[in-house]
């Protein structure tokens, strides 16, 4: 315990430093973002969508929308994380999430360290808390963690003295994905309030679905979950959603269709009989998309199984598919998250 005190004071010190180091607005160009006082988050960590209040979500989306402009994103003066250390701690393999956080951190001027724990001391038997102690000794300011165990980021957050961001934990949550999905929708459709959104596929094992259900509910969307009964949690209808087991009924009138990835190992007889049966009943193709509202948009958190949950001609149709756009908004969204979290939450001060 006495070991922890120096870090805590260090963190506080950073916070004070940030406030005093604020750049005078007058000398800024219009592409320059300032860490504004009003947009502080009510949370120190981003472990779950439940950590965020509506004003936090609005601040994050507003700031992210500014960062969507590439000239803002790449403006070297937006180095609000200069001198700060961001550690990407990935216990599970990831392409887009890890690189997206890395790029976001670098564009904000942070020192970024990627630790692929699949090939590190964790694979030699080190426990998560031992890893946490080791990392703490490196004095990071932001820790992005992905782990196969639900709740691992929360456990880590109790043991380190910096902000922890959940980049996906087990089948629990993936809050930054939900935020970037919301940003994607907001920039394309304006408001999320009142949209009818279907989330389809393997809800049972999806952390993306859990985060999205919470976030889109807060933002006022009408949410439907569609999937075979074996892939939808038993009491999912208690989540403020409507549950459907057929695409025809479920997609009726939907403005947005979010497809989820189906893990291949879940497809050969254990949860669903086969790939071909899954695609036949739940894979998104043109004919099923016709059930949705005219002009409905399609999203997918990636990586896709083409021909299993989504047909290629839909995934690659720029008029329908937001899939590439989701990756683009991912960087801007994560810049906003890193930016606001680095200022410290109210609970921390």
């Amino acid at each position: 315990m006495n070991k922890k005190n120096p870090y805590t004071s260090h963190f506080t010190f950073i916070g004070i430093f940030l406030k005093t180091a604020k750049i005078d607005k007058d000398v800024m160009s219009n592409t320059h973002i300032s860490p504004s006082e009003g947009s502080r988050l009510n949370t120190r960590h981003l472990l779950s969508i439940a950590d965020l209040h509506r004003p936090d979500i609005d601040s994050l989306l507003d700031l992210a929308e500014t960062y969507l402009d590439l000239s803002v994103q790449k403006d070297a003066r937006n180095n609000v994380l200069a001198g700060k250390t961001l550690i990407n701690l990935f216990f599970e393999n990831s392409t887009r999430t890890e690189k997206s956080f890395e790029l976001a951190g670098r564009r904000l001027g942070a020192d970024v360290i990627n630790m692929s724990m699949a090939t590190s001391s964790a694979s030699k038997g080190e426990t998560l808390l031992d890893t946490a102690t080791t990392l703490n000794a490196m004095n990071p300011d932001l820790l992005v963690i992905r782990h196969s165990a639900s709740g691992a980021p929360a456990l880590l957050s109790q043991k380190v003295s910096c902000a922890v961001i959940n980049a996906g934990d087990g089948t629990h949550e993936h809050p930054t994905q939900a935020l970037l999905d919301a940003l994607t929708l907001r920039t394309r459709l304006g408001a999320i309030d009142g949209l009818r959104i279907a989330i389809c596929g393997d809800i049972l094992h999806s952390r993306v679905a859990r985060s999205n259900v919470q976030l889109l509910n807060i933002l006022g969307a009408e949410i439907r979950l569609i999937g075979p009964p074996t892939l939808i949690p038993l009491d999912a209808d208690q989540w403020g959603v409507e549950v459907y087991h057929d695409m025809k009924g479920g997609l009726k009138g939907c403005d947005v269709v979010m497809m989820l990835r189906l893990q291949l190992e879940r497809m050969s007889g254990s949860f669903v009989p086969s790939k071909r049966e899954y695609f036949h009943f739940y894979g998104l193709d043109r004919s099923k998309l016709e059930y949705a509202a005219p002009g409905a948009l399609v999203m997918h958190p990636g990586p896709m199984n083409r021909g299993v949950e989504i047909s290629s001609d839909i995934a690659d149709d720029p008029n329908i598919s937001l899939i590439t756009r989701q990756v683009e908004t991912g960087v801007a969204m994560r810049m906003a998250i890193l930016h606001l979290l680095s200022q410290g939450g109210d609970t921390e001060v």
Partner: peptide
């Protein structure tokens, strides 16, 4: 109900 009646893998019930 199961492939080859082996009681391990589900068959294509829907199809």
């Amino acid at each position: 109900l199961t492939k080859n009646l082996d009681c391990t893998d589900m068959t294509e019930l829907g199809l």
